[in-house]
Design a protein around this nucleic acid. Sequence first.
DNA 1: TCCACTTAAGCAACGCTGTTGCCAAAGTGC
DNA 2: GCACTTTGGCAACAGCGTTGCTTAAGTGGA
Lengths: 376, 376
Amino acid sequence: MNGNGNGTGNRNGRAAGASGVNLLALRSHNGALVLDLLRTAGAAGISRLELADRTGLTPQAVSKIIARLRVDGLVTEAGYRASTGGKPRTVLRLVPDAGHAVGLHLDRDALTAVVCDLTGTVVGERRAPLHLGAGADAVVENAAREVEGLLAEEDAPLLGVGVALPGPLDHLHGVLHRVTGFPEWEGFPLRAALARRLRTPVVVDKDTNAAALRLAVALGTHGSFAYIHLGTGLGAGLVIGGAVHRGARTRAGEFGHQIIQLDGPPCSCGNRGCIEALCLAAVARGDVDEAARVLGAGAANLVGLLDIELVLLGGRTVEERPDVFIRGVGAMLDEWARLQGEEPYVPVRVASGGSLGVAEGAAQLLLAPLFGRADG
Amino acid sequence: MNGNGNGTGNRNGRAAGASGVNLLALRSHNGALVLDLLRTAGAAGISRLELADRTGLTPQAVSKIIARLRVDGLVTEAGYRASTGGKPRTVLRLVPDAGHAVGLHLDRDALTAVVCDLTGTVVGERRAPLHLGAGADAVVENAAREVEGLLAEEDAPLLGVGVALPGPLDHLHGVLHRVTGFPEWEGFPLRAALARRLRTPVVVDKDTNAAALRLAVALGTHGSFAYIHLGTGLGAGLVIGGAVHRGARTRAGEFGHQIIQLDGPPCSCGNRGCIEALCLAAVARGDVDEAARVLGAGAANLVGLLDIELVLLGGRTVEERPDVFIRGVGAMLDEWARLQGEEPYVPVRVASGGSLGVAEGAAQLLLAPLFGRADG
DNA sequence: TCCACTTAAGCAACGCTGTTGCCAAAGTGC
DNA sequence: GCACTTTGGCAACAGCGTTGCTTAAGTGGA
């Protein structure tokens, strides 16, 4: 589908720092920008002049870009706005079926797979049990079959498969580092294995990053927020400037082993006073208020360090008592801000998404680059 | 000096998200990129072909860009490399005197002003006592006189004045929030006042951000690191992807009031268990090892959250016992990484710079944008 | 000394970008 | 029906990086 000529147009990837921009890259950037605004507009659509206003480009430039995107089949005209005294604006919309992407969520014991269209809407879904102990080859084969089954009824062009799973990994190379309790997974090249098996591009990332990416896309934000996940473990996905911040080694967002009580109770990692240990211990003994307070302290540390604008909470434990966590974390953030002499300003909300959230985010690993939301 | 036509070329600033790129912006970007490589190369210089290799642009494109920069007087030819069997490469260098910038460091009781050339080299320096209690107008007048005195001998074009000072402020508008103990400074529009008085562009930022910016420029890095400053207070400047991360409200880097001991000893801010309180208390009782350990725990939290690649320490307290802090913080980082099952990988070093570091960083607030290192 | 070869960098033509100026299309409202 | 407003395409254009070729300036062997 992509006659857009994506790619930087650079002949090499050896440049360590920022790289030069040529006309191909410029076209790609502006095209992606327009697509992102079209996606954000959703079913309501957006007109050429609004796009010109939002991008800062001239109306004529937008017209040309739209013409290209229409030829590529990515955009279509869909009716007209009400006139404001002159010719009514033409409404433009993304063509959802111009491309699909698969999102795969590999959790401890379950596999969730979704197909999303270009707007990010789920158009197909499958679930299956997962046995990590069965070995890498078996799991890859299992996952590949699920994907194939999901795609059997689809005929839109496939952009690729995004995979989200817990634990440390190298998202650039798609190699796993550790899967707790299953040493054979150490160093397994999941991306390459699945790409070879399915003959399609594959991207691998942490589950929290996928969830955060999905939220960034859904919110349409170019700002910064943190998604904090409290389930069987405690982790976070960071979005800075609208892009997921992974760090050089995909290790960013290690929120759970933040030390919040020096020389505190021991954590499973061997350290003392990790926020995960404190928080989960409070949950275990039924003291949800205390868990929320501890979580709030960690969130305050995070907000203070990064000056993010929003905190989103998710995960099984949060979903059981959302109001308690919203109140508890919010109170800590407000109190912290007040003590620093600032107005309380960071809203705390429960992340939408439900059980498909991570899988949708995995699909966004392939969709988002089309809209200029590449890796951070 | 700037015939380069900087500016995005957009007619409006209303675009909330990412904005479109036109040919002016493209030229500006590539020109800045080339200038940055020239600056990084320093006195050794760099050839056209090397620039082409680093930027990913074609040699001919680089030739054209260099031709423009030479017309603007920013770049000059300076000798030749040794031949490798053919025509020797022409060495290109930045023209230091194509533009100067003033950096102003307003500390609790002292003012430091420097003039830097385009390469960031200090070519003039002044110090004076500072009395914040004398009132805003008097302080502005005092600072302006120092700047004028500093510039009396200079004749290179002035890019503007950068001001670095502690405490919360709004760097976008150059407005101060609080200056401890001097309520009259609350809300003072320092940027506007100084710009009107000196009739030159003024940029205002936190001292830790200025110090971090200077380090980012000096290191020539496009990666991520944290500068942690331990002096009369404890704060940090964050560099992510080569740019200073300030957050939406210039509040990022609030490291000192990170809660590291829940319900710990009270801090001056009114909270409990802030890392600043613990660290300074340890310093006060002479237990530098403990101070370094506490600082290391906070640094580990930071590294874990952001996956940064380097930690730089600075400030009076660190400079008194640099080895203790390097060892103590490094040990905590290594131990933390080991417990997470990772190789120790984050080096800890003492930030170079000395007493002029912050003022130099303030000057970089104006120089850095020329090299594409705009606000993060 | 000559000459083949290598490497660097400029010239000219080109394709493509967004921009500008103009005009047709398609509405509203008196 | 006419004046006006607004949208959006057409055509010409300036300027970007690219391509193909030429010139400049070295090395090294015969």
